[in-house]
Structure formats: structure tokens, C-alpha cells
Write a protein that binds this DNA or RNA. Structure first.
Lengths: 214, 214
DNA sequence: GCGTCCTGACCGAATGTTCGGCCGGTTCTT
DNA sequence: AAGAACCGGCCGAACATTCGGTCAGGACGC
């Protein structure tokens, strides 16, 4: 047998998208290499030409998911807008991103634990693989904390500047991001509210929660 | 071989707690019957004396988790307090419950998907088992929606009564519960904030978000 | 002695991963 | 320009391992 008749080449991104989508409703552990391969018209064995093993595949999905929109959030955070403006734009952008990339957003919630428990290939791979895996995984976690920090800092800045009420920034940040991530669980495309609608509600809610009362 | 030497009898609740705890950091799919059994000093085979199979075990964990505190929430919701008072007490109670039962709360987030994908025992069990499993699973999901409804209704009531701002109740409810559930991910006992502290922040935040501005 | 609780041994079904080889396109040699 | 050598991408088959689940029976308390 040869390759599929006149098929378009399958590239890494295609596989990552397919994987993220399957992870979304089966979860990493329950997802088979065969499942992922089938979605891109390949064999399980073929996936190993693109990724070292299943753990690395997951790692790549998560790294890719985190990259979605982080640059734009940095831009907003670094702009010279007021903290109120910044936070509003960041929330809107984040929520829309989540709603438009549910598979990756869901992975950021549900597949981090599998990532942490993964060894990087204890079964067959040597110690070299484990080393690289752990390093990249650490970088991912650090980057994820940095992501949360972007929101927390704007919040802290706003509190110091007197734009926001005095609240416990770490907790409120987590409550906020928890609510945003949760969107990837219940949001459905074509539902009553569009991604922008949901984002509007979130922005309105959080700015109201932080507004100083006088 | 016989049973363990003179050890205290293991009861269903012990197994469920042990299971929930292991689920929390390995996830349902990655958790082995052996893992659970070991935690209560049993053999994997012994677990089948207490539960039909792995799927039913999960179902029991989730059913138990949902029962935690739902009665008290019903009481608060049915009381004759103002909607503001009701919501405040409900949030506080819910958040404290989550923080004090992280394993079960985490299961409510992470193990619902495994439950939905579970068949109830396609491998060995007959159609009877599948039937019962699906029925109980449906009841669980319905009860979970009802749980969300308790919060949404108080919110709606408060809006109609003019106690709260006009917001999109379904979305705000989900943002709220998303934030609460997320507590089970980041909260750690003995950390900077106690369960009550976290609950206070949440109550304060959400009441501020809903307060009518005049 | 009877039912409850528990156990070791075992089974069938998957799963992640490796391996040797096939195919089509590209590059090198002459 | 034509054939040879090569290579990336892909496959079928096989392997080791693991896991959920069953079964027949041993020990304990009543």
C-alpha cells in the first residue's frame, strides 16, 4: 500500500488540531494514538514520524494552546491605556479566544494534570527524552503562571492607582480566569450568545465587581 | 489466604473517599482499580464486592460529591431572606464546601467527562447493567443542572426584585460557579487564605458585581 | 454452618511503541 | 536527459505490558 491517493500532505498543525479536538471529548488518557491518526487519515505508527511519543504530542498541544493570544495580551498589558481599559480589553480578548478555540482552551484545563503525571516516555525512551520532556514541561508551567500574572498585575496596578476597589488580587484573578476557562466547557457555537456576547457579559461583570464605590 | 489480619472493616464510604482522592491527582482513566484497592488495604478483586465495576464506582463518587451541601443550599434558597442575603450565604457555603472537600469538588469538574463517555460495563456486564447505569447517570446530570439552577434562580429573583443589576443570569451564574469550582484546583489547606477567607472574597466580589449603581 | 468479606490466579482486550519495508518525489551522476 | 541513489512520509505486523473483570475457594464472625 502507498500513501493515500493524491491526498494533501498532513502537517504537524493538522495533527495538533485533531488531537486537541479528540482530547476535548475523550480526554488525553482515553484517547488512542489510533483515534488521532484516524482523524487525519493516518496510521498510529505514522504519528511517530511527527512526534516522539504520546506525551510529547500532548506537550505540543498545550504549548500551542498557550501561545494562542498570549502575544496580544502582552501588548494590551504593556500599552499606556488605563488599567480599567486594559483589563476590559484583556478579558474580552481572552474570552473570545477561549470561545473560538474551545479545544485548546479545554486542553488548558483538563489536560494539564495528565501532563504533570506524564513521564515523557519511561517505557521505551531513554533518560535523554525524559530530560527534555521535563525541561519543556517546566517552561510551559512557568509560562502559564506568567499568563496568569499578566491579569494579576493589571489588577494590582488598578488597585494601586485607585481605579479598582481593594480586593485580594490573587484570589480575584483566579476567580476570573476560572470563569473564563469554564466558558470552554459550556459555550457552544451558534448558541444563544455569540463569543462576543459572552465576552461583553464578562467584561461588564468584572469591571462592575472592581469599580470603586463612592 | 484470608482477609487482612484484624483490620478494621472497610466500608463503602472509605473506598469512595480513597477513590476521589486518587482521582484528584491521577484522573479517572489513569487510576487503576489496584490503586484504589491499595489505598484501603484491599485487592483489586475485592472492590468488586462493593461496586459493580469501575464505572459504577465513579458514578458513586460523583453522586456522593453532589450530595455534599446540596441540602443546605436548598434550605438557604427556600428561606425568606432577601436575595442578596441568600446569594451571599450560598456562595460562602458553596466555596467553603469546595475547599473542605477538594477531592469531591475536583471530581465534579474533571470526572464528569469520563462519566459521560463511560458505558457502564459494555465489556462484560449485560444490557441490564448498562440500563441502570445510564438511568442513574441521567439522574446525576439532571441533579447537577438543578444545583446550578439554585444559584441562577436566586440571581433571577434578585434582578426582578431590583436588588441586583440587570445581567445575563445564565452566563453570570456559570462564571460564578466556574470560579468556585476552580477553587478546588488551586486551593491548598494551610495556605495564605483559609477556606473562609476565600469564601469572603468571593461573596464580596460577586455582591459588588451585582450591586445596583444609582 | 452459613453468609459476608476477601484473595490469588487467570483471561481477553487494548494500547503505546518499534521495526522493516514500500512508495513517490527529488537530487545527483553521467 | 535518463537512470541511479536517496529520502521523507507512511504502512502492516508484532511485542511487551497493563488493565478491567471473573472465578473458585479460604477465613472470619454470627
Amino acid at each position: 500500500m502507498a500513501r493515500k491517493p493524491a491526498d494533501q500532505t498532513v502537517d504537524r498543525e493538522d495533527i495538533l488540531s485533531a488531537a486537541a479536538e479528540i482530547f476535548r471529548h475523550k480526554g488525553y488518557e482515553a484517547t488512542t494514538m489510533k483515534d488521532i491518526a484516524a482523524k487525519v487519515n493516518l496510521t498510529a505508527a505514522s504519528l511517530y514520524h511527527h512526534f516522539r511519543n504520546k506525551d510529547f504530542l500532548l506537550l505540543n498541544v498545550l504549548e500551542g494552546g498557550l501561545d494562542i493570544g498570549i502575544a496580544e495580551l502582552e501588548n494590551i498589558a504593556a500599552s499606556d491605556l488605563s488599567n480599567t481599559e486594559k483589563l476590559g480589553q484583556m478579558i474580552r480578548y481572552h474570552v473570545v479566544s477561549v470561545a473560538e478555540n474551545v479545544e485548546f482552551a479545554a486542553a488548558m484545563i483538563f489536560e494539564v494534570r495528565p501532563l504533570l503525571n506524564a513521564s515523557g516516555g519511561n517505557r521505551y525512551g531513554g533518560a535523554k527524552l525524559m530530560e527534555e520532556f521535563r525541561a519543556r514541561r517546566s517552561r510551559f508551567i512557568a509560562r502559564r503562571d506568567y499568563f496568569e500574572g499578566l491579569f494579576r498585575n493589571v489588577l494590582l496596578g488598578g488597585i494601586c492607582a485607585g481605579e479598582f476597589r481593594q480586593v485580594d488580587a490573587p484570589t480575584v484573578t483566579r476567580a476570573m480566569l476560572g470563569g473564563h476557562n469554564w466558558v470552554s466547557v459550556w459555550y457552544s457555537d451558534g448558541g444563544r450568545l455569540s463569543a462576543e456576547d459572552v465576552a461583553d457579559v464578562m467584561v461588564d461583570t468584572w469591571l462592575a465587581a472592581l469599580r470603586v464605590s463612592d
